[in-house]
Structure formats: structure tokens, C-alpha cells
Computed example of a mutant assay.
Amino acid sequence: MSTSPDLARITAAASGEHPASRSTTFSAAWKDLRRGFGQRELWLALGWQDIKQRYRRSTLGPLWITIATGVMAFALGLLYSQLFGMNIAEFLPHVAVGLIMWGFIAGCIKDGSEVFIANEGLIKQLPSALSVHVYRLVWRQFLFLLHNLVIWVALLLIFQIPVGWKVLYAVPAMAVLVANGVWVTMFFGIVATRFRDVAPLLDSLVQLAFYMTPIVWTAKTLERQGGAVAERAFLAKLNPLYHYLEIVRAPMIHEPLDPMSWWVVLGFTGVGLLLALLAMKQWRFRVSYWV
């Protein structure tokens, strides 16, 4: 059965792509990412609007983000510092910064798995690159992260944590974290749109990963106990999420950083971007039919 040129153009517009870009090549996938980034006025505005809409008619507005994270960090930091016998001045900043960064990572994974489903109307009606919806979500999560950095600043002042020039290492680390947020959202967004059981599965896995990642506990705690327990600290470092947190957390709380963490993160970033491009190459133009 033949398809008229007008129908082809309408279908392409509904999927957010031009007819010429519907090829299954890495070049076309990369072009979608570049085109979406070029439409930053759109996704910057939409991401900010998401936050305003979420806290509409709220007196404190986005400050609730910071308050909720701060209360949780204080409660967990106080509890586990007593359980592990650690100095709260050392442990609370570790927990707080870990929770801030974890909020960004978990948000990109869990919300990212439903990014295209949640934007069904826009995908079918708005002629834009598919990646626009990914950038919008990552931008929104990054705004949450920036709000929560107020907690880190408060802890610096309360516990008189020294801040040297090495704290600047956290800036490129956050940039890498954002880049990972893009590929994570794109990859899981496409897969979870096709297979709807993936989203609830990811939600459970993220919850499990929270307890397996040194956020409310530290690898140093295991090392200090010695013996077989100290050997388990090595197993904790096999978790790639540990390294994602460390490249940001260590310079922010004035702790030494193992250069190996950067190599692990850069390696996973490269593999992840390749996976996202592969998923886009194969399935990006089908998303509008799956939502």
C-alpha cells in the first residue's frame, strides 16, 4: 500500500522529526541530539515551567525540595553516625552531599523511564527533536540539584569544612553527571516506552541500589574494621554508582579522591552514550507510535 507524501510529512511532524532524518544511522541519531540541544529555549522554558507547576499555590514553592532533602539528610546522618560510631561533623556532610547527587541520578533513571510516555501529547503534536524531552527532564533534575546545594553550603558554615581550590573539581564532575543523565534518560526512556514493565523494574532496582551504594554508610567504615569486613570495602567500590558519587562528593567535602573513580566514570559514560545512540538509531522514530 502506498503512502501519500502529505501523510508522510504529517507522520514525521507528529514524531518530532523531519522525513529526511528518519534513517537508522548513527549520524541521524547524533543529529537528533544536536537538533534538540539547539532548541534549548524550548526545553529550558518547559523544565522551569515543570517546577513552577509542581509547586503552584505553595507558599515556600521550590524550597520544599531543599527542606525535604535537608530533613532526610539530618535524620539519616544523625541515626547512622550513632550506629557506626562516627563523628557527625564528618559523616553528615557525606550523607547530605550523597543524597543530593543521588536525587539527580535516581530522578534521571526513574523519571527518565517514563519521559516519553509522560510527554505523549507533545511528541504527537509538537514538531521537535525527540531529545528535547530528554533535555527538559535532565534540566529539571539539575534545577532540583542546584536547589539542594543550599544544604551543602549550610554544612560548610556549620562544621567549618575547609574549602580549597580543589572544590572546583566538582564543576566538571557535575558536567559529566549531567551528560550521563542525558544518555540514561534517553536509553531507558526508549526501552521503557517499548516494554512497559521496565519502568517499575527500574524503580525497584534504584531502591535496591540506594542501600548498596555508600550514601548512608561509607567504605571507610568497612576498612577501619579490618579483617574480612575490610575486604568487603573493595566489593563496595565495584559498584559504578560509588564512583559517580565520589567524583563530585570528595572535592565538595574536602576528602581525597582516588583517580580511578574518574576513569571508571569516563568509561561508563562512553559506553552509555554509545548505548543511547544505538537505541536512538534503531527505535527513535517509533517512539511516537509506542506512546
Rank of each mutant, 00 (worst) to 15 (best):
D6L: 09
D6E: 14
I10Y: 04
A12D: 10
A14W: 01
G16E: 01
P19K: 05
A20R: 15
F26Q: 01
S27R: 09
S27L: 12
A28T: 07
W30D: 02
L33H: 11
L33W: 12
R35F: 08
F37C: 02
A45R: 14
G47D: 08
W48F: 12
W48K: 10
W48N: 14
Q49I: 01
D50E: 15
Q53M: 11
R54C: 03
Y55F: 15
R57H: 08
S58L: 11
T59S: 08
T59C: 02
I65H: 13
T66F: 00
T66M: 01
T66I: 00
I67M: 02
V71A: 15
M72D: 09
G77S: 02
L78G: 08
L78V: 06
L79K: 01
Y80H: 09
I88D: 00
I88G: 01
F91G: 01
G98A: 01
G98E: 03
G98D: 08
G103M: 13
I109Y: 07
K110I: 10
V115I: 09
F116N: 05
I117V: 15
N119K: 10
E120V: 00
K124G: 09
Q125S: 12
S131R: 08
S131C: 06
Y135H: 03
V138D: 11
L146N: 01
L146C: 07
V150N: 05
I151A: 04
W152D: 07
A154I: 13
I158V: 08
I158W: 06
F159M: 03
Q160K: 10
W165A: 11
P172W: 07
P172R: 02
A175E: 05
A175S: 00
V178T: 00
V178N: 03
A179K: 05
A179I: 10
G181R: 03
V182F: 08
W183A: 00
W183V: 00
W183T: 00
T185M: 02
M186I: 04
F187T: 04
R196G: 03
D197Q: 02
L201S: 14
L202H: 03
F210A: 12
Y211D: 02
Y211R: 00
M212W: 07
T213V: 10
T213S: 07
I215D: 00
W217Y: 15
E223D: 04
G226I: 07
G226V: 03
E231C: 00
R232F: 13
F234H: 12
K237W: 07
L238M: 10
Y244G: 05
R249E: 14
M252D: 06
E255L: 11
P256L: 07
P259I: 04
S261Y: 06
V264C: 08
V265F: 11
G267L: 15
L273P: 00
L275C: 11
A276M: 13
K281Y: 08
K281S: 15
W283V: 07
R284L: 04
F285M: 13
F285S: 10
R286F: 13
R286I: 05
R286S: 14
V287L: 14
S288I: 02
Y289T: 08
